[in-house]
């Protein structure tokens, strides 16, 4: 009789399986979501397509990503500024890089410009970067879909 009672007490502990299921599901969900946030992409920008746009084999050493919308404004670390007012935030970026011991000429400025943006604005953006001291630029494009 005593043996039977003890056994009943053990089965009353409860089932852990649903909790573990949910925990795994949450882990998987947050892993994927955090990966998305790191890609620095923006829904507003429709990149131009090119058949030569292949993901780089070696990532850039010190990239700065500038996103240019079709209205001619630049999205830079969460701020939206027109190209004409880009100098102060760029100078700030440069100071941060120099503070960390880097040279602005080693930095690659990745330009994610919208396909519908005027080329003149892209050129003005490049000029603003040059005047701040950046030298290397990468124009980003989306791989052309064959299907």
């Amino acid at each position: 009789m005593r043996f039977k009672e003890r056994r009943q007490a053990r089965t009353a502990e409860g089932d852990m399986t649903p909790m573990i299921d949910m925990a795994f599901q949450l882990i998987a969900f947050f892993m994927v979501v955090i990966n998305f946030a790191g890609a620095e992409q923006n829904e507003r920008i429709r990149l131009p397509e090119s058949e030569l746009a292949k993901p780089p084999e070696v990532p850039f050493e010190m990239p700065i990503t500038l996103q240019l919308t079709k209205e001619g404004t630049v999205l830079l670390v969460g701020e939206e500024v027109p190209v004409a007012n880009l100098k102060p935030p760029l100078r700030r970026e440069k100071e941060i890089i120099e503070y960390r011991g880097g040279k602005p000429s080693d930095v690659t400025v990745i330009i994610r410009a919208d396909a519908r943006a005027p080329t003149g604005v892209v050129q003005e953006l490049i000029r603003a970067c040059q005047e701040t001291g950046f030298e290397k630029f990468a124009l980003r494009a989306k791989q052309q879909e064959d299907w």
Partner: peptide
Amino acid sequence: LLLVFFIMTLADRGFVAPEGDFNIRMPVA
């Protein structure tokens, strides 16, 4: 769980085309 997993994987690889860069060097100020 499987549904969420495959939707996420496909959205990452299949629907969003990979991006690449064209390097442009303009060293003069």
